[in-house]
Amino acid sequence: MSYPENLKYTKEHEWVLVENGNARVGITSYAQDQLGDVVFVELPEVGTELKAGAMFATVESVKAVSDVYAPVSGTIVEVNEALNDSPELVNEDPYNDGWMIVIELSDPSELDNLMDSKAYQKMVEEGGE
């Protein structure tokens, strides 16, 4: 299990990469491992407004469905269209090619509410949520 140090994390196992005032969002390696083989990702449309904590995508494995929640508020400016044809990217490369959306932050201070990699790793190793 890996926990890249340049990312921030949520209790629901999303990761955030801050770049140029935007937040790139995906699910963690731990989350994809719990789900098993991902077979479908239902993504929102560019332009959708999100509030922190709102559900924005669902990830389906063969026998489970899981919601993905927005770690921060803002407007979706990009979605990873590659997941439509290759949902397995979420399993194979959750922190890079398996990203889901990019959010233009409306309140950068919300980033302070997220965990750093050490705190997230501790949470997972103590039994997750």
């Binding site: 077979v39 389906e60 026998k63 489970a64």
Partner: peptide, 12 residues
């Protein structure tokens, strides 16, 4: 596509 079905998605 069993995730559409009630035994997995329940009330949804």
């Amino acid at each position: 596509l069993q995730t559409r079905e009630q035994h997995i998605r329940r009330e949804r």
